[in-house]
Design a protein around this nucleic acid. Structure first.
Lengths: 153, 153
DNA sequence: GTGCATCTAATGTCTAGGCATTAAATGCGC
DNA sequence: GCGCATTTAATGCCTAGACATTAGATGCAC
């Protein structure tokens, strides 16, 4: 679960010192977890089934496709995606293997790598986008039954 | 990423057929992802550092502690936690090894397992709860800088 | 009773992803 | 120039968790 080093050192602050009650925060947190699980699950399944893409792969493709130059340094991508640097490196590796992006050396900084969307990558992202949008539209504001069955049929 | 079988078969529905724009849904989805990553990361880190508990372990302890009888069948717990049946079984295994819960056979249905919070488990959950509440209070509505650094100091 | 479908929880296996380390490149101090 | 800290991306290693399978228990049909 843990992510890179995102977390501030703990300091104490208003703890409402609840005893046994379920606080509003906890209710909201559980809703967030439920929504996240539902969407993540649906997106992953539909992107995989329809376009052979995992959610992280799609996210990276999408970020590249949004840029006018359709390429970016790994570091830049890292800032807009919730993945550790190593995980991102591996996602890019999978995308490269699949022929959807290419890795190129940066001439001006030879430590950095430029990741460029290939034509096929753009096609794939363009195909997958409606799937993602449809899932979001269907589920982002749906009632949340926890057993998240079939609200869209 | 994928979860059990939560997902409905795809059917087409209002796709707003956006072209290149970032839709409101996408913005909302990215916020959800960011919030989830931030909280997950912070909770996991603080629960681990302060109480030797992962987030999933804590969630299960909390669910049990909320029940008057402080025990439940695995199946029942599964319904309130976003884990596959196998993952839950392993979380319970870790909790059992740590002495925080006990597994007992159900007399009335010998397939089922009753999971009971031990005294130590209750103590641990009680100690950890303020940590969880503090993190939620600090971060659940904080501005979201994506590089989620130190909003609480 | 004997099958047989169903349900329960545990486990084998695999992948994604996190942390730590590494190698290469940079750039600054000297 | 020569070191040395910093930055970049890749990789080794490990854990959590998902899917598939398994073993045991149940219960119904007959």
């Amino acid at each position: 679960m843990r992510l890179h080093d995102n977390v501030a050192p703990m300091t104490d602050l208003k703890v409402s010192a609840e005893t046994g009650e379920i606080s509003a925060d906890v209710r909201e947190w559980r809703q967030l977890l439920a929504r996240h699980a539902d969407l993540t699950c649906a997106l992953d399944r539909e992107l995989q089934a329809g376009h052979q893409l995992g959610m992280s792969e799609y996210e990276v493709l999408e970020r590249l496709a949004e840029l006018p130059e359709q390429s970016a340094k790994v570091q830049t991508i890292a800032k807009s995606v919730h993945l550790s640097q190593s995980a991102l490196s591996r996602v890019i590796g999978r995308l490269e293997t699949a022929g959807l992006v290419e890795r190129h050396m940066c001439p001006e900084d030879r430590r950095a790598i430029n990741v460029r969307l290939t034509d096929e990558g753009l096609v794939r992202q363009t195909e997958a986008q409606p799937t993602q949008r449809r899932v979001l539209a269907n589920r982002l504001h749906s009632p949340l039954t926890k057993t998240c069955d079939a609200p869209s049929t």
